[in-house]
Amino acid sequence: MVEQDNIIELVDENDDIVQFEYIMTLEYGAHDYIVLGPVDEEDDDGIVILRIEQDENDEDIYVTIDDDDELDSVFEAISEIMESDLE
């Protein structure tokens, strides 16, 4: 059973609610990122990385990263953190 404190619900492009498990928040470069994982262990599509930005009300919103170089750099930083945590 997954603890509800670590669950984040997002709305996908089909307006369906999708649940993710919160893994970490990372400050990298000029931005903050949130790292999410699948809630259902059978649905193991890997992690999801989203950039955290603020809307017009200064509330956090999660934005898809379209720049492959940015996504690769952030993924590499996350991988290094996770590897060091395992050691």
Score class of each variant (00 low, 15 high):
Q4I: 15
M24F: 04
E87H: 12
I49E: 02
D44I: 10
T64W: 10
S73E: 11
I23R: 15
V35S: 12
V2D: 05
E42G: 04
I61F: 00
Y22K: 07
I23Q: 12
L26T: 07
I81H: 11
F20C: 04
D66F: 11
S73N: 13
T64A: 14
E70G: 05
L86R: 06
E13K: 04
D60F: 07
M24R: 11
E83L: 13
N6M: 02
D44P: 07
I52C: 10
D16Q: 03
N14W: 03
E3S: 13
G37S: 13
D45R: 12
D16P: 04
I65W: 05
Q19E: 15
D43N: 13
V11M: 00
E59H: 04
I47S: 11
D45I: 09
S73Q: 14
D43W: 09
L86G: 10
Q54C: 06
D72E: 14
A77W: 12
E83M: 11
I49F: 05
V48S: 01
I78E: 01
I61G: 00
V63H: 08
Y62E: 03
N6S: 01
V74N: 05
E13Y: 01
E13V: 07
D15L: 01
L36R: 06
N6K: 07
V74W: 03
E27I: 10
V48H: 02
I7H: 06
I34F: 02
V11E: 01
D72N: 14
G29F: 11
V35I: 14
I52S: 01
Q54F: 02
N57G: 10
L86N: 09
I78T: 06
I8V: 13
M1L: 10
R51E: 09
V2A: 07
G46Q: 09
I23W: 08
M82L: 13
H31R: 02
E21C: 15
E42A: 07
I49S: 04
E80W: 03
E87M: 08
V35P: 10
L26C: 03
D58A: 07
Y62W: 04
S84E: 13
L50Y: 00
D15H: 11
L26R: 07
H31K: 10
H31M: 00
V39Y: 01
D69H: 07
I17S: 09
V39G: 04
D5T: 15
D66A: 09
E9D: 09
M82H: 11
L10D: 05
E70P: 03
D72T: 08
D58P: 00
Q54D: 00
V48G: 00
D67C: 09
L36T: 06
I81Q: 11
V35R: 10
E53D: 06
D32E: 15
E42I: 05
A77T: 10
D16Y: 02
I23H: 13
Y62C: 03
H31V: 00
E41K: 15
I34E: 01
Y33R: 06
I47W: 02
V11R: 04
M82V: 14
I47R: 12
D44H: 14
I61L: 01
D85K: 15
L71S: 04
R51G: 04
Y62Q: 03
V63E: 09
I34M: 05
I65E: 07
E3Q: 13
D69L: 07
V35M: 04
V35A: 09
D60V: 02
I65F: 03
D16K: 11
I47P: 09
V18W: 02
F20P: 07
E76C: 13
I78A: 02
D43K: 14
E80A: 14
D85L: 15
N6A: 00
D85P: 02
